[in-house]
């Protein structure tokens, strides 16, 4: 962690060393022509294209109902899209359209390659299991059958997300909102995923708690360099974490670019509205 990265807004954007690769390298994650409808009537996501490069943080902003959370659920392979392609450019998965895999194969990808943190911890955690158990489950799915290894891994992941270890065996339902998000985060990173999905991870938390959780997210991202997509309606959160940003409205992308560029000098009227509302 470098000093310049620590105090959010005024610091120059922390540009990972890999940025020049944007030009030369293939993106780690590629999505093409993603369409998702609900009930045949509502088009939640309309022909979305998306690319994320290794180590990069992509922000998706938009008001509620813009389809941004749907994008994350589809990218987490928990909902099937109506059409589209989804590629991970890793040696094992290159050339495979992840949307077209069968359920068990998708489960493997979801287990090994993707981590997710939901706004609503009830979606991400089993409230009747211990916090550590929530993390252990992921390792179990990955095939770990050693109790000690499960304990160690759960402890390490919780420590990395700055969770108080003396409470690792508490039920999430007994934890505060901030701590629940840390358990989710620990679960998401326990298997060192290629892609981290954050869906409004700090929305609804107290301002001070929100700041601390954001600090943790930022530190983790720097340290591990995990490729991240963060969805938020809060431009402050996006500004703090995202390298690039994509603005969505009614299922479509209306503007995309470097975070600074888009937020300082929005081109699309809708983005302008968002930015001004925020200011």
């Amino acid at each position: 962690m470098t000093d310049t990265c620590d105090n959010g807004r005024d610091a120059p954007r922390c540009v990972p060393a890999s940025i020049p690769l944007l030009v030369t390298q293939k993106p780690l994650v590629q999505v093409r022509g993603l369409v998702k409808r609900y009930g045949g009537r509502v088009v939640a996501v309309d022909r979305l294209d998306l690319e994320v490069y290794a180590g990069e943080v992509l922000g998706i902003v938009g008001e509620s109902g813009s389809g941004k959370s749907t994008v994350l659920r589809v990218l987490n392979l928990e909902e099937r899209p109506d059409s589209g392609e989804y590629y991970f450019n890793t040696p094992e998965l290159a050339g495979l359209n992840l949307f077209a895999l069968d359920r068990p194969a998708q489960r493997r990808v979801r287990t090994f390659e993707i981590g997710i943190v939901y706004q609503n911890p009830h979606l991400g955690l089993r409230m009747r299991n211990t916090s550590s158990g929530n993390i252990a489950e992921r390792l179990i799915t990955a095939g770990e059958r050693n109790y000690r290894a499960l304990r160690l891994a759960a402890r390490d992941a919780l420590a990395a997300s700055e969770f108080p270890l003396e409470r690792m065996d508490d039920l999430p339902i007994r934890l505060s909102g901030g701590m629940q998000q840390r358990v989710q985060l620990a679960k998401a990173i326990a298997l060192k995923p290629k892609l981290l999905l954050l869906d409004e991870p700090t929305t609804g938390l107290d301002v001070s708690v929100q700041a601390r959780v954001l600090d943790t997210l930022k530190r983790l991202q720097r340290e591990t360099g995990v490729t991240t997509i963060i969805v938020s309606h809060d431009l402050g959160v996006i500004r703090m974490l995202a390298d690039r940003v994509m603005v969505m409205r009614r299922g479509r992308v209306v503007e995309r670019g470097l975070t600074d560029q888009v937020l300082e000098d929005p081109q699309d009227p809708y983005t302008q509205q968002l930015v001004h509302a925020k200011l």
């Binding site: 290894a149 499960l150 304990r151 160690l152 003396e166």
Partner: peptide, 8 residues
Amino acid sequence: LGDYYGDG
């Protein structure tokens, strides 16, 4: 017995 954190 203590809490077992996996230290063996």
